[in-house]
Computed example of a mutant assay.
Amino acid sequence: MDPTAFEQKIKSGSVQILDVRTSKEYKSGYIDNAMLADWLNEKQFNERTQHLDKSRPVLVYCASGIRSAEAAEVLRTRGYTVFELVGGMNKWKREGKPVKGDKPVSQMGTEDFNKLVQQSNLVLVDFGATWCPPCRKMEPVLQQLEKDLSGQFALTKIDAGVHTALMKQMNVEALPHFFVYKNGQKVWDKQGIVSLEELKKALQL
């Protein structure tokens, strides 16, 4: 699809937008609501794309169209309906289509993080990002958790697309990654998709 058709497809609703560039490229500007799965990082690409919804079309793009074409071919063999942006972000920008960009945010240090996990007797920390497919899949689970255990714990979300130094210190290698702190001390952590019941159990340790 050319940029205009791609944009109209996005506006039609019920689609998933997938950016297959690197995280550095993504930060330089991306299509609103796009998720990220780096095609050049095979492990990351496979891990993140397995959480896409096969009942909804996937609109995929890269910088020029080469990587997205390769990614689209693989996704189709896995049962997804895929549409590609011809010319990629380069052509999208040349045609004046809207581009989102991250605003500069200061890196969170260990001291600030320690203050966050001491804000309540019981804290659930969520290292995630809006562009992460499994993180989005966890959103309704977290919302339900907050309803079911209302007032019993504090949920702290750490944007892994920003606070990369803290991620390294915490040994967070993949997203999402959850931690439970009780009275400021870590008592549980787990990487990846976690069920509602498992989170409840972790918070009741």
Rank of each mutant, 00 (worst) to 15 (best):
A5T: 13
A5Y: 14
I10R: 08
V15M: 14
I17R: 10
L18P: 09
L18R: 11
D19G: 08
V20H: 03
R21S: 13
K24P: 04
E25Q: 02
Y26V: 02
Y26D: 00
Y26E: 01
Y30Q: 00
Y30F: 14
Y30M: 00
Y30D: 00
D32P: 01
M35V: 08
L36G: 01
A37I: 08
D38G: 09
L40S: 14
L40K: 09
K43W: 13
K43A: 14
D53W: 06
K54F: 08
S55Q: 11
R56M: 10
C62I: 14
A63M: 15
G65L: 10
S68R: 12
T77C: 05
F83P: 03
G88W: 10
G88N: 12
M89C: 09
M89Y: 02
N90Q: 14
K93A: 15
R94F: 13
E95D: 15
G96S: 05
G96R: 07
K100R: 12
G101L: 09
K103T: 02
P104Y: 06
M108P: 02
T110R: 02
E111M: 02
F113R: 00
N114E: 07
L116K: 03
S120E: 04
N121H: 10
F127E: 12
F127T: 06
T130P: 01
W131H: 06
C132F: 06
P133S: 05
C135G: 03
R136W: 11
K137C: 11
K137A: 12
E139R: 06
P140H: 09
V141N: 04
L142K: 01
L145A: 01
K147N: 03
D148Y: 11
L149R: 09
S150N: 07
S150L: 05
G151F: 03
Q152D: 08
F153A: 09
L155F: 06
L155P: 02
T156K: 15
K157T: 11
A160H: 10
A160P: 04
L166Y: 05
K168V: 08
L175N: 06
F179P: 02
N183I: 01
Q185C: 06
K190W: 01
K190Y: 05
I193E: 14
E197D: 12
E197A: 12
E198V: 12
A202D: 04
A202H: 04
L203P: 01
L205S: 13
